[in-house]
Simulated scan of single mutants.
Amino acid sequence: MPRDLQGFLVAGRISQTRTVPASIARPEYVGRSAPKPFTGSDVYAASDVELIRESGTIAARAVEAVGAAIRPGITTDELDGIAHDYMIEHGAYPSTLGYRGFPKSSCTSLNEVICHGIPDDTALVDGDIINIDITAFKNGVHGDLNKTFIVGDAAPDVRALVDHTREALARGIKAVAPGRQINVIGRAIESYARRFGYGVIRDYTGHGVGTAFHSGLIIPHYDAAPAFDDVIEVGMVFTIEPMLTLGTVESPGSVAWDQWDDDWTITTRDKSLTSQFEHTLVVTERGAEILTLP
């Protein structure tokens, strides 16, 4: 089992790349080292929003299918297989597969892994928490979300972290309104997280999504004012995906992290547990509507 003597994660064995039928359209970056520069707009017409919703629904249902299979003993690679098969069966391409060389169809971030965990032969054990991050590409657009699950039973502080991270996302979404600046989202999230002494990951953010997997629009999850002063507009589509940790918070509020040699896996430096939730949403006249519901 790929964990060290203290129970912390180490890199496991990665299985062969899963195949996608030729009949399913690929994003433009598949087979290339990086995506093309995004030159479009983060504001979408209503018809395009509906296409993003379709991709988002597929991704959300894939997350639920994976969640239903989570139990002690199952490996993260087996969970990735469930995600992959669900998207393929519904005519969608797994957006992470081949994105900048990522080898799998989902991200499985376990315990101290903040984000971008690569599915491998790591077996889940009782008390773990695992984030399942899935993006589906169909009809030329992506829908992106993630959700943290508890494996079996967990300590009260761990359950509270997961519950509070879910609520932090809800508060970030509630802060969205046309005419406001992007930085109000992070302000709402960080002010809530501070009530419980959590660290907020600053270096990984929400982003514009739609025709591009990541458009270049940045949605920070901390109080970034006066920076990130883009004005929120009706029809904007982006993700909000706060990452909170039980660990050490360094001045001025940042959380230290390390990257594995795989160039993807990001862990808290102090090995503290971290939780994340994400939705893709569209800005409406009254606030925001979630596009990644099952």
Score class of each variant (00 low, 15 high):
Asp85Thr: 13
Asp77Leu: 01
Leu51Pro: 02
Asp80Thr: 03
Thr76Lys: 01
Leu79Cys: 13
Leu51Arg: 15
Thr75Val: 05
Gly67Ala: 07
Ala59Asn: 12
Tyr86Arg: 04
Val63Lys: 10
Ala59Leu: 05
Thr57Ile: 10
Glu64Ser: 11
Thr76Asn: 03
Ile58Ala: 08
Arg71Pro: 10
Gly56Arg: 00
Asp85Ile: 00
Ala45Pro: 07
Asp77His: 04
Asp77Val: 00
Gly67Phe: 07
Thr57Lys: 13
Ala62Gly: 15
Ala68Cys: 05
Gly56Asn: 04
Ala69Gly: 04
Leu79His: 09
Ile82Glu: 02
Tyr44His: 10
Ala46Thr: 15
Ala65Pro: 01
Gly67Pro: 09
Arg53Gln: 15
Glu50Met: 15
Leu79Pro: 10
Ala83Met: 00
Gly56Glu: 04
Leu79Asn: 11
His84Ser: 11
Glu64Trp: 02
Glu54Trp: 09
Ala46Trp: 08
Leu51Asn: 14
Ser47Ile: 06
Asp48Glu: 14
Ile82Gly: 07
Arg61Phe: 06
Gly81Cys: 06
Glu50Leu: 15
Val66Ala: 10
Ala69Phe: 01
Ile82Phe: 03
Ile82Thr: 09
Ala69Lys: 15
His84Cys: 05
Asp77Gly: 14
Ala45Asp: 13
Pro72Asp: 06
Thr75Cys: 09
Ser55Lys: 04
Ile58Met: 05
Leu51Asp: 11
Ala68Met: 08
Asp80Ser: 14
Ala59Val: 05
Ile82Cys: 09
Asp85Tyr: 02
Arg53Asp: 06
Ala68Tyr: 07
Thr75His: 02
Asp48Tyr: 02
Tyr44Met: 01
Ala60Tyr: 06
Thr75Glu: 00
Gly81Phe: 09
Glu78Asn: 01
Thr57Val: 14
Ala60Phe: 07
Ala45Trp: 02
Pro72Arg: 07
Ser47Lys: 14
Arg61Thr: 10
Gly73Tyr: 01
Gly73Arg: 03
Ala69Pro: 12
Arg71Trp: 09
Glu54Phe: 12
Gly81Ala: 13
Asp80Tyr: 00
Ile74Phe: 12
Ala83Tyr: 08
Val66Lys: 04
His84Val: 11
Thr57Asp: 06
Gly67Gln: 08
Asp48Met: 12
Gly73Val: 12
Gly56Trp: 02
Ala59Trp: 06
Leu51Cys: 05
Tyr44Val: 04
Ala62Pro: 06
Arg53Ala: 14
Pro72Thr: 12
Tyr86Leu: 07
Ser47Pro: 00
Arg53Phe: 03
Asp85His: 12
Asp80Leu: 00
Thr75Ala: 04
Ala60Asn: 07
Asp77Cys: 00
Asp48His: 10
Tyr86Gln: 08
Asp48Thr: 14
Gly56Ile: 05
Val63Tyr: 00
Ala46Gly: 00
Ile58Pro: 05
Thr76Ala: 07
Ala68Pro: 02
Glu54Ile: 14
Thr75Pro: 04
Val66Trp: 04
Thr57Ser: 07
Leu79Gly: 13
Ala45Cys: 02
Ser55Met: 03
Gly73Ala: 09
Ile70Arg: 14
Asp85Cys: 01
Arg61Trp: 04
Arg71Phe: 10
Ser55Cys: 04
Ala69Asp: 10
Val63Glu: 13
Arg71Met: 03
Gly81Glu: 15
Ala62Ile: 01
Pro72Gln: 11
Val66Ser: 10
Thr76Cys: 05
Ala59Thr: 09
Val63Gln: 13
